[in-house]
Design a binder for these strands. Sequence first.
DNA 1: GCGACAG
DNA 2: ATCTTGTCGC
Length: 236
Amino acid sequence: MVTRPPELSTVSATIETPGTVAEAEAVQDRLRPLVDLAGPGPTAPRTVAGLDVAYAEDGDRLAAAVTVLDPTTLEVLDTAVATGRAAFDYVPGLFAFRELPALLTALARLTVEPELLVCDGHGLAHPRRFGLACHLGVLTDRPAIGVGKTPLVGTWAGPDRRRGSWAPLRDGTEQVGRVLRTRDDVKPVFVSVGHRMDLDNACAQVLRLTPRYRLPETTRQADQLCRAELRKLAGV
DNA sequence: GCGACAG
DNA sequence: ATCTTGTCGC
């Protein structure tokens, strides 16, 4: 039986919001088996979405942004934002619950269908192997990857100083992602699979999106957009 | 027991 | 995440 991904406009209505750490962990444990690790995922996606969230100084109000780019030209094809309040306290490992509602609301407002979601945070490189990228991927049933700026779990050695070099990110005996150098002599990023992608393809897509900067252009665009939206909230 | 801990 | 200027290097 063929199952089709849900319309993005319907996903946010289906999420559950845990009230405690135990409940949140239970949600992750229940959704974890739904992660699709088969891959390989789209080799040449025509649309790639970047997602990011910015917080007000009160640490409560926030703005989420999604930008859809043509990965070949890096042209921005579509954008969407959503404002709201943090849906959960910040707890390492449960970070996704803070931003998920706002991100899903923003995704629902897109008019261009993204073929890949590039998340600001980790996917499988997570204590229970279910970081934001997995969560977002499973809920939307779209290919998703995580690109973190700093590690959450795992150890590594290297990688070489040149762009394109990488080293396995290991947590115990498991390979949970890759430490990938996106620019020569620049601090590497942490790439991990979210959903419906394999690690090789995830890294290939990240490299395509980083011709000039350390972070994917998708993430950079989303970062700028949500910060601008936040300034509107503040009043400036 | 202590420190670390995506954003 | 956010608070924050200048500054070293290419």
